[in-house]
Design a protein around this nucleic acid. Structure first.
Length: 556
DNA sequence: TTAGGGTTAG
């Protein structure tokens, strides 16, 4: 921190400003810290040294190490004639996203030729997108330039093909290598294990390895966890000679994906060291499994452990807050994101829009949504479902139209919002035509939520028989949501016959839901069938359900 | 003259 405050005339007898800046930057390398880095950067700009290739290269690396790839790119852009070294550092800084390919493209328009350091990072970009065509293109350049035999280049090729889903080419590169090391084997193993579909092949690679390291074992844990075979994953985890924080975290991810939160938590509490990823997977595991209270409790505990959340962590935290609802919580999480400089990437913004929408703050939801440069199906769906469920049906359908104009394909969640909008506005014909389009144009199999929307829509319009018919046609059998909507409609339109049949099914599916009993009783009561109404209450008493228990959630 | 490649967890 002190280094940046030093004047550029430093005490180590630097003979010019460039040397001093280089010295200060080198001090930063051991533990980069943004505020002092920015100060040094500012001094470099003031001394007009920003065109210096060597200084720019170090700056690029430092910004990259703080995950600030945009800053890194801006430094690169200010150098008029970048050296090969600067190109390579910049390509590396951007290797987690597609932009490094653009930097490479720019380089090919200069006399500078790529070297063996250029390609591995470019291949990382292809893998990160992932884009097989780009990968093949880069592979072609590698062959032409003769860097194919370099171990890191070949290893990166194996990895790239694996991540782009072409196991055949991944294997081919591996087979054609004359010399292989443990990284080559791990890359091939990762290619087979990552998906988890073909653990038999992964196992063959693993068994055939001349040397294994902790990464090889971790890849097996990941593979078994990804195919839902927790037992084998745990077996490998127990068998491995050494474990690191990645091994523990991968095992936790396996448990959370299978919904075994207790197992995940037990590992989390016993692991020897925790890093940001471990905290994040545990928090997101709770959030994704509908346990928002646990997620937020853990998030608060992070602060005590002085662990700073990042964008990944916050998407889980925001989604937990969305599940809990409540404007106050939503606002406090929202300002936390702002105050702590959490990167407002697409996932964070989508989660924020969804949270505000679920809390009914549509103004804020729309404001955040407009911040998203290229909204995808998830961002659109969050906004559409939010608008629809808070009575802004017209707006919801408008946004749906915009989404279609943008050629973004709707998914099953989008249609829940669209159908819900139609249902709330009583737009039966539109609802029916969206339903048809969903099934025929988009090949989306309607799920329980879609049926519930349609039943609700038909029920509100008094088409109780059609609604009842729709429920009977559900391939997965009747569902509480749809049945509940129909029962409510029976109350409105006073249809005892359908109500009785629907209620009977509902009592079986959710025997503890007081609302259903009360609804049926009130339908009887409206017909002055007091005896039947009393009978329903008796059933409630027999089953030990009382009105208060069913209503207690209101107080929370 | 000097700097930098690849594999495992969100």
């Amino acid at each position: 921190m002190q280094a940046a405050a030093l004047p550029l005339k430093s005490k180590h007898h630097a003979n010019n400003k460039a040397d001093t800046a280089a010295f200060l930057l080198k001090q930063q390398c051991s533990s980069p810290c943004l505020p002092s880095l920015k100060q040094i950067h500012a001094q470099i700009l003031r001394s007009n040294l920003h065109q210096n290739n060597s200084l720019a290269s170090t700056l690029v690396s430092l910004y990259a190490s703080l995950s600030l790839s945009l800053h890194a790119f801006l430094v690169f852009s200010s150098v008029p004639r970048p050296s090969l070294y600067l190109y390579n550092r910049t390509i590396r800084a951007l290797s987690k996203n597609p932009h490094s390919l653009l930097v490479y493209l720019q380089m090919t328009r200069t006399p500078i030729k790529p070297d063996n350091f250029t390609f591995p990072f470019l291949l990382n970009s292809c893998a990160a997108i992932p884009s097989l065509p780009h990968g093949l293109e880069i592979h072609g350049r590698i062959v032409k330039t003769g860097f194919g035999p370099y171990l890191p280049v070949a290893n990166a090729l194996i990895d790239m093909y694996g991540k782009c889903g072409d196991l055949g080419l991944s294997r081919k590169v591996f087979d054609e290598m004359i010399v292989r090391d443990v990284v080559s084997y791990n890359a091939l193993l990762g290619a087979h294990a990552r998906g988890g579909e073909d653990m038999a092949s992964a196992r063959r690679v693993f068994d055939g390895m001349p040397v294994r390291n902790v990464i090889s074992w971790n890849a097996m844990v990941v593979g078994y966890a990804n195919c839902g075979d927790l037992e084998s994953a745990r077996w490998v985890f127990e068998e491995m000679p050494q474990r690191n924080v990645v091994s523990w975290t991968a095992m936790i991810v396996g448990y959370t994906r299978c919904g075994v939160l207790d197992g995940a938590r037990a590992l989390f509490e016993t692991m020897p060291e925790r890093n940001l990823v471990s905290w994040t997977v545990m928090i997101n595991g709770y959030a994704q499994n509908g346990q928002p209270v646990e997620a937020l409790a853990l998030f608060r505990r992070m602060e005590v452990d002085r662990m700073k959340p990042d964008a990944f962590t916050m998407t889980g935290v925001i989604s937990a807050s969305a599940q809990l609802g409540g404007t106050e919580l939503a606002n406090s999480i929202s300002s936390y994101v702002e105050k702590n400089g959490i990167e407002r990437n697409e996932k964070v913004l989508t989660a924020l829009a969804d949270m505000h929408a679920k809390c009914g703050n549509m103004e804020e939801a729309c404001r955040v949504f407009n911040e998203i440069p290229e909204p995808d199906v998830f961002s659109y769906s969050a906004l559409i479902t939010g608008l629809a469920s808070h009575g802004y049906g017209i707006r919801a359908l408008e946004i749906f139209g915009r989404m279609q104009a943008e050629n973004i394909e709707p998914d099953h969640i989008t249609f829940v919002g669209v159908l819900n909008a139609c249902s709330h506005m009583g737009l039966i014909n539109d609802g029916l035509s969206f339903w048809k389009s969903m099934i025929e144009d988009y090949k989306i199999e309607p799920g329980p939520d879609h049926y519930a929307c349609m039943v609700d829509m038909l029920g509100r319009a008094g088409q109780l028989n059609e609604a009842h018919g729709l429920i009977k046609s559900m391939p997965s059998g009747p569902h509480c949501g749809a049945l509940g909507a129909l029962l409510a409609a029976c109350r409105t339109y006073d249809d005892v016959e359908i109500a009785e049949s629907v209620a009977e099914q509902l009592f079986e599916l959710e025997p503890d839901n007081t609302g259903n009993y009360m609804l049926l009783a009130s339908i009887y009561a409206s017909r002055e069938r007091w005896d039947d109404a009393a009978r329903v209450r008796e059933v409630m008493n027999e089953r030990g359900i009382n009105k208060l228990a069913g209503c207690s959630w209101i107080e929370n």
